[in-house]
């Protein structure tokens, strides 16, 4: 059985939540509005070859031989990461 204190606290929380929600669309301010309803998230099944890319699928990377030759050049290279051990380092992806 739920006691009276809990019931009151619950009702107060729900009332407060309803009040917060009435403040326009503050909740979705940080939300992603997928441009044009997710064109990039469409299914991707097609019946044609993948363009003019005669070597795009011909990776010579031999990962298991630890000969990983690709270096990350994405936005992570600018990001400082705090690792679980508390140490900070830049998020590079240079070969290990």
């Amino acid at each position: 059985m739920i006691n009276r204190t809990t019931t009151v606290a619950l009702a107060a929380a729900v009332a407060a939540a309803a009040l917060m929600s009435s403040g326009a669309n503050a909740q979705t301010a940080n939300a992603d509005k997928e441009r044009c309803y997710g064109i990039s998230m469409a299914g991707k099944n097609d019946c044609a070859a993948t363009g003019n890319n005669s070597c795009a699928g011909q990776s010579k990377a031999d990962y298991d031989a630890k000969a990983w030759k690709y270096v990350a050049k994405g936005s992570c290279a600018k990001m400082e990461v705090t690792l679980k051990d508390g140490k900070k380092r830049m998020g590079t992806l240079a070969p290990m």
Binding site: S59, A61, K69, A72, G74, S75
Partner: peptide, 16 residues
């Protein structure tokens, strides 16, 4: 993920 590692790295990783 692709933006974080760059497209060349991503493609190579995707092939693995």
């Amino acid at each position: 993920v692709e933006r974080l590692v760059g497209d060349e790295f991503f493609t190579a990783m995707a092939l693995v």
